[in-house]
Design a protein around this nucleic acid. Structure first.
Length: 285
DNA sequence: TGCCCCCTGCAG
DNA sequence: CTGCAGGGGGCA
């Protein structure tokens, strides 16, 4: 899925489009992808769009929130008059929608639409009461680790969280949403590269200096991800259907077999917890 | 803490 | 055909 930078980019884009719009109707094309009562949110006005970790929340009036998790292949694409040039989609937009991956369509009272596409159907939308957010999903939302781009996220907090995962390889550990939230496979690989740490190194073997570098690496990689509009390996597009450019600037992700941008050594790819990890055997110790 | 699984489609 | 893909829940 989209990781923190992609979800944040969607949040920013959606905020500019849907605040104040009233939901007219909802079409659920894949029951698995939508949990909740459609009629509960019909006629409700959108008040806010927020993000926690990789979860997006659309706050409606009357104490209702629509939570969205895009998992691996989810897309949230808004189409209204402002997205069209001369009545035709701009060149960056995905094709006609709904398409074969469209799972839910929300139509607003001005007839603009929000499409939830998700090829693999891992993602979901669910309607919850806003005042129950903290206790949803067995406490999923409040079990999440700190937001890495918040002021309060310090290297000491990262160290404290990491200590609970003694033998876990560092790159796997920072993808654990209870340690730090929002980091996924792309930015985890980039963060350990920036920190010059071998992704296989066990958490308990990290020095304070390494934790400090890791802390900075996480923040830097996520900020760059947002700056370049996210990573579009395959599916990710922003709320207007446009791809992100971060992978053009990535040091390691997707670059196995190519030269390290810093030392020209050939980058290696290994598997950790079932996920691919690319790293530089010379820069990362 | 590690493995299997959810599901779909693409590249090799 | 096999393996792989921005995630993470459930289970031993």
């Amino acid at each position: 899925m989209p990781e923190l930078p992609e979800v944040e980019t969607i949040r920013i884009g959606l905020s500019k489009k849907v605040l104040g719009l009233k939901i007219k109707d909802i079409t659920v094309l894949s029951p698995k992808s939508f949990q909740g009562e459609i009629k509960d949110i019909q006629g409700k006005v959108v008040r806010d769009v927020f993000r926690r970790a990789k979860v997006l929340g659309v706050t409606l009036e009357s104490d209702l929130t629509v939570l969205v998790h895009l998992k691996m292949t989810g897309q949230l694409i808004y189409q209204g008059e402002t997205n069209l040039v001369g009545g035709h989609p701009t060149k960056d937009m995905v094709g006609e929608m709904p398409n074969r991956s469209t799972r839910v369509v929300i139509t607003f009272s001005d007839d603009s639409k929000l499409f939830f596409n998700d090829q693999r159907r891992f993602g979901w939308m669910k309607v919850v009461r806003s005042n129950e957010l903290g206790i949803m999903n067995n406490g999923f939302l409040n079990k999440l680790g700190p937001e890495p781009l918040d002021e309060e996220f310090s290297w000491q907090i990262l160290k404290e969280k990491l200590l609970r995962r003694k033998t876990m390889p560092v790159k796997v550990a920072i993808m654990d949403q209870e340690i730090v939230s929002g980091v996924g496979n792309i930015y985890a690989a980039e963060a350990v590269f920036l920190a010059k740490i071998d992704p296989r190194k066990k958490v308990k073997d990290l020095t304070d200096q390494e934790v400090k570098r890791l802390h900075q690496g996480i923040i830097k990689s996520l900020q760059d991800g947002i700056r370049y509009g996210g990573s579009s390996r395959e599916h990710y597009v922003n709320a207007e259907g446009q791809k992100g450019d971060f992978l053009d600037y990535a040091f390691v992700y997707g670059r196995e077999g190519k030269e390290c941008k810093l030392c020209q050594t050939k980058l290696l790819k290994i598997k950790q917890s079932g996920r691919g990890t690319v790293f530089c055997p010379l820069c990362q110790k």
